[in-house]
Amino acid sequence: MAFRGPKAWLWRWRRNPLKRRIDAVEAWVVLGAWMVTIATGVLAGLTATGSVEHGLARERAEWRQVVALVTQKAPGTAPGPASGHSARASGEQVWGKVRWTAPDGTGHTGQVRVDPGSAAGTAVTVWTDPHGELVTAPPTASQARLRASLIGVLVGLSAAAVPFLGGRVLCGRIERRRLAQWDMEWARFGPYWGRKTS
């Protein structure tokens, strides 16, 4: 088993007679890359989270439930009382044409999910935006927080990847340059290796 000494914190900034200028440059590049990565990820994540929460809160405030009427009999057959269950309880629904009136008084038509066999004139509840167009039900406050948090994490990680990868690429170039310097010095001093000085 190889011997491992105690871990030296901040070893890149400690004095060392073998440390070269390129080693100091690499130390600052690593520090800068980590600082920019963390700052970028946190700022992008918080900004995205706030933007998504604001947008979803606006949807909850502006979208309204309205009563729409089925315009023609929906496909399928409505289960009778003898079947012992309703289509709504089983979750089976079909697409049906409906019409509704927007807040500005204009009439709209569209397709929504309704119970099979719904007769013309059956009332169904739909969600509309301020223009009276059909929308899905807005998320609740807790659903909005969860969605905003997930999107914020994804955006933060994606944004942080850019400076992180940039720092890795820069450190790779520094490492190649350091190896090239070692090769030059080895070519200069290698022939003297093992030669007696006296």
Rank of each mutant, 00 (worst) to 15 (best):
H54A: 15
V135S: 11
W127M: 12
G156K: 04
H108D: 12
G172H: 05
G41L: 07
D183Y: 03
L154P: 00
V135N: 06
S142H: 02
A68V: 03
G91R: 07
R14I: 05
Q143H: 05
V29C: 02
G45R: 03
V94W: 09
T125I: 08
I22P: 01
L10E: 05
G107W: 05
L146T: 13
P103E: 09
R195Y: 02
A187W: 04
A74H: 09
A2L: 09
R21G: 15
A33C: 04
D104M: 07
G167T: 04
G117T: 01
T47Q: 12
L170N: 00
F164Q: 03
K73W: 01
Q181F: 10
P17T: 06
E92N: 14
A44Q: 06
V112W: 08
A8Q: 13
W34R: 04
S90Q: 13
A8P: 01
V169E: 04
T101L: 14
T197H: 11
Q72D: 15
V36Y: 01
R168Y: 01
E92Y: 04
A24F: 11
F189Y: 15
T40S: 06
I22G: 01
A78V: 01
F3S: 08
P130R: 02
R147E: 07
V155W: 08
S90C: 01
L46A: 12
G194H: 06
G80C: 11
G190C: 07
R188K: 15
L46T: 10
N16W: 08
V155K: 04
R173S: 09
T77Y: 02
G194K: 06
